[in-house]
Computed example of a mutant assay.
Amino acid sequence: MSWFKSLSVRGRTLSIGLVLTGVLVVAGSTVSIPYVALGPGVTINTLGTYDGAPIYTFAGEDIPPAVNENFGDGSHLNMTTVSVTDGMTLFGALGLWASGNSALVPREEVYPPGQTTEQVKEENAKSFKESQNSSEIAALTYLKYPQVIYVGTIADNSPSYDVLDPQDQVVAVDGVQVADSAALQAALANTTPGQVVTVTVLRAAPGGSAAQKDLKVTLGKNPDPAAESGRGFLGIVPQMRPVAPFTISNSLAKSDIGGPSAGLMFTLGIIDRLTSGDLTSGHYIAGTGTIDTSGVVGPIGGILMKMIAAKDVGATIFLVPADNCTEALTRVPSGLQLVKVAKLTDATTALDLISKGETPPGC
């Protein structure tokens, strides 16, 4: 270190500064930080194709002729996504932030502690599948397809646990036809705990078909003190859902897209495919929002990034969940019209107004 001691004070200061700068440069360009960057993701037209296959395909009987209508290149109902960049260095993160199209958030907001990246992806994939199921139910309900009874929710450790499936359509109990919840209750009226009953269901099979199954359930005792005593307990919360004589397949089910936020756009895509005409009236429409089976549209994350993604691909109208409007208004891309949506009928009414040249309610 004799060379260092021989330097002037200014020389020593400069040398130390250069070393510290070098350390900072190395660390900033090689060491990962506990943040991820959220940015505009892919957008996919639900009226179009994915990997060369139509987003929606239909199989079965009485498929509406409308599914064969040819949508023009100008017809868009795009779902939007957010990209996630993980494993960033400090300099990489600063570069994305400086671009103005990305937001930095703590990594634990996307990948919670105690969960691996694969576990998070599996949960997102499950949410995506549930979103597809909810969108199909919401669309068929909107189109007034007949309602039938499904198993619905199954309580843990109930008599039906690991025997019935929430997606089973209930057909009969001990040979007595069941059309709704009242009929199901009537079929169980004279049963007792410990009695074995045969529940006939229609269960979805690979390829979209459905197979009838006779399943044995040993009834239990209802744990609810207010329930009628002595009656056998099946342990389900049945749900009425619409049913069509055909099945609906979504090609995005095989993609690596995750999360529930495409629900609204999936629903609109199904409705447009099953009805004559064009919901978009030739407009480039994009949007986001979860949807439940009753058609209620819920808020999502990354609204600003999704609006940027929509604008980048040419969208001029963006459907915004009502609860996201306040955030959406903080940064509206130039030329993008925001439409406020709290439920499915808000969206369909808005699209009808747009087709007439009128302005729907905005954020």
Rank of each mutant, 00 (worst) to 15 (best):
P360L: 00
H76V: 14
I291C: 02
F91W: 07
D278M: 11
I16H: 00
I291W: 01
Y284G: 04
Y145H: 06
C325E: 00
M305V: 02
K343R: 14
T21L: 15
A66G: 06
T293E: 04
L234A: 08
L7F: 09
L7E: 02
D156H: 12
R107S: 14
Q147H: 14
A179S: 15
V201S: 05
I308C: 00
L274F: 15
N68L: 15
N250S: 13
K340A: 08
T13M: 14
V197D: 01
A27T: 11
Q169Y: 01
S75P: 03
V313R: 05
P159F: 06
T345N: 12
T198Y: 11
L188E: 04
I291T: 01
S160W: 07
Q337T: 08
K254N: 12
F128P: 06
A93P: 13
L234W: 09
V82A: 10
K126G: 12
N101C: 02
A187G: 13
Y145L: 07
R331C: 04
G259W: 06
G263Y: 03
A205H: 12
A322C: 01
V173Q: 01
T30M: 10
T349L: 07
L140S: 02
G207R: 12
I44H: 03
D86N: 06
T345A: 12
I257H: 00
I271N: 08
V36M: 05
M79K: 11
T280Q: 05
R12Q: 11
K306H: 07
F246V: 12
T192E: 14
F318G: 03
G277N: 02
G301Q: 06
G335C: 01
V176E: 10
V170E: 01
D165K: 12
T80N: 13
H283D: 09
G22C: 15
P64I: 07
A53H: 14
I55D: 07
V178F: 01
I236N: 01
G72H: 02
G95D: 15
A253C: 09
K340I: 03
G114N: 05
I257S: 00
L336C: 07
S102W: 13
I271D: 08
I303V: 13
T348S: 06
E130I: 12
E130V: 11
G17T: 03
A125D: 13
E108I: 08
S83H: 04
D352M: 07
K126M: 15
T330P: 03
L219T: 09
T21Q: 12
